[in-house]
Simulated assay, not measured.
Amino acid sequence: MSNIVWHNHKVTRAERASNKNQKPCLLWFTGLSGSGKSTVANALDVALHERGYHTFLLDGDNVRHALCKDLGFTDSDRIENIRRIGEVSKLFADAGLIVLSAFISPFTSDRRLVRNLFPAGEFIEVFMDTPLDTCEQRDPKGLYEKARAGEIRDFTGIDSPYEAPERPELRLDTSSMSVDECVNALIDFLIGNQLIR
Rank of each mutant, 00 (worst) to 15 (best):
L113Q: 15
L113D: 15
L113I: 11
V114T: 11
V114Y: 05
R115V: 05
R115F: 03
N116P: 09
N116R: 15
N116F: 10
N116E: 15
N116T: 12
L117I: 12
P119E: 12
P119M: 03
A120T: 15
G121A: 03
G121C: 05
E122V: 03
E122D: 05
V126Y: 00
V126D: 05
F127Y: 14
P131M: 01
D133V: 11
T134V: 14
T134Q: 12
E136T: 04
E136S: 07
Q137S: 15
Q137Y: 14
R138C: 04
D139K: 06
P140M: 10
K141G: 12
G142M: 04
G142V: 03
L143R: 08
E145A: 15
K146W: 12
A147K: 01
R148N: 08
E151M: 13
E151I: 13
E151R: 14
R153M: 05
R153V: 07
D154L: 05
D154V: 08
D154I: 03
T156R: 01
T156A: 00
G157T: 00
I158C: 04
D159T: 05
S160L: 11
S160Q: 14
S160P: 10
S160T: 13
P161Q: 11
P161M: 11
E163G: 08
E163L: 03
E163N: 11
E163S: 10
A164G: 09
A164P: 05
P165I: 03
P165D: 12
P165C: 06
E166T: 10
R167S: 13
R167K: 14
P168K: 01
E169P: 00
L170G: 00
L170I: 01
L172H: 02
L172C: 00
L172M: 09
L172P: 00
D173N: 15
T174D: 06
S176Y: 12
S176H: 13
M177W: 12
M177P: 13
